[in-house]
């Protein structure tokens, strides 16, 4: 592989993952390395061999960049990107992040299911009443209408809660994930500690957050949102 082939391969693996300025800066570094190799009477293919597979080198650069992003801004997108990138070179960090991802997915799916069921019940109730409306006195119709509206309102409240909780959770997970990775970097010789550190990581932050959200949001009319409270805590507990 010649110098130009190597730099081209490196650039094509980097483009799209990190900014153009960074790519050109990185290429500058590797070009300098080739030039210095030439000064030492090294053939270009020899220098290329020393550097190793450009794809692997690019993967490591990209992984570092994504982890940096996820640490600075733990959004869902950055987290998944970082997770994917980490997989390339650190299975341990990837494995450590799996339970968090699973818990997050489970939690959101559960809450969404409750939302869907509530909406469905509201619709069913409403249409059922409409169909029977001719046979019923108007007072019953009013009652049913109010019940249906209550159910809908509860459903919307839950949706709002889902969104709020997810945002908190993503932030919290992001912090934890970043911590696990930083620990891994900061104290590599004691990599074994990482797992225990992660186990000890208290869950309380999120549980402590929940009640305040529950009371902070507009008080739901019906008792229906309540099932969501113990439900979500169960999910987040393990």
């Amino acid at each position: 592989m010649t110098k130009n082939e190597y730099l081209k391969a490196l650039a094509s693996s980097l483009n799209g993952h990190i900014s153009r300025e960074e790519v050109s800066d990185i290429l500058r570094d590797y070009r300098e390395f080739f030039d210095d190799g030439a000064l030492q009477q090294e053939e270009e293919w020899q220098t290329a061999q020393r550097l190793g597979d450009p794809k692997e080198v690019a993967a490591q650069i990209v992984a570092e960049a994504y982890i940096g992003q996820a640490q600075k801004k733990p959004t869902m997108k950055n987290l998944f990107k970082a997770q994917g990138a980490v997989k390339i070179y650190s299975t341990a960090a990837f494995v450590a992040s799996i339970p968090l991802m699973l818990a997050m997915t489970g939690l959101s799916l559960g809450m969404l299911l409750i939302f869907l069921l509530l909406t469905l019940s509201a619709i069913l109730l409403f249409t059922g009443i409409l169909m029977a409306a001719s046979a019923l006195p108007s007072s019953a119709l009013w009652l049913a209408g109010i019940t249906a509206a209550g159910a809908l309102f509860a459903a919307l409240t839950i949706l709002l809660l889902v969104i709020m909780m997810l945002r908190r959770f993503v932030k919290w997970t992001g912090g934890l994930f970043a911590k696990v990775i930083t620990k891994k970097r900061a104290a590599p010789p004691s990599a074994q500690e990482d797992a225990s550190q992660y186990d000890e990581m208290e869950i309380p932050p999120i549980i402590a957050v929940q009640p305040s959200q529950q009371t902070g949001s507009p008080a739901p009319e019906s008792t229906q949102p309540d099932p969501s409270l113990p439900d979500s805590q169960e999910v987040s507990e393990p």
Partner: peptide, 20 residues
């Protein structure tokens, strides 16, 4: 860069491209 990579490679067998 080259000097640094060289200095490490004397002692350890590493994938030299990963120093950057």
């Amino acid at each position: 860069g080259y000097e640094l990579v060289q200095a490490i490679a004397v002692y350890m067998e590493i994938n030299e491209g990963t120093v950057y």
